[in-house]
């Protein structure tokens, strides 16, 4: 589980950047999961254009961080994995979004 307190320095917005989310591939995964209730592995793979191995690696990391929940079921005798953000993941993403806006928003064009 990621300890969020260490990223929450009010004076330094960059300190609020969660490294678990910040990696581009995981950021993409988190963004797509943030706008839906849940989606299955196939749908997420299609949206992110990632390979099965790559996506599963990132999902495992996010799951270990407590940001993602995966539930397995069978449809037409085939395995189906539904993926959704946990409340903690949703909150972490909101915090990440705010920190990035705060950090980059004041930069001149």
């Amino acid at each position: 589980m990621v300890e969020m307190d260490k990223y929450m320095d009010q004076d330094d917005p960059l300190a609020g950047i969660d490294p678990l989310i910040h990696a581009p591939s995981r950021l993409r995964v988190m963004t797509y999961l943030y706008v839906v209730d849940s989606m299955d592995f196939v749908y997420l793979k299609r949206l992110t254009d990632m390979s099965w191995g790559n996506l599963s690696t990132h999902l495992t990391k996010l799951e270990e961080g407590g940001y993602v929940r995966m539930s397995k079921s069978f449809q037409d005798k085939k395995p189906n994995t539904m993926i959704e953000l946990t409340e903690e993941g949703r909150e972490a993403f909101r915090r990440y979004k705010d920190s990035m806006q705060q950090a980059l928003g004041s930069l001149p064009d």
Binding site: D37, V42, M82
Partner: peptide, 13 residues
């Protein structure tokens, strides 16, 4: 369906 996957939309959508 097997190629597209399944999505459940969030409250906004």
């Amino acid at each position: 369906r097997p190629r597209a996957g399944v999505v459940k939309y969030g409250p906004v959508r």
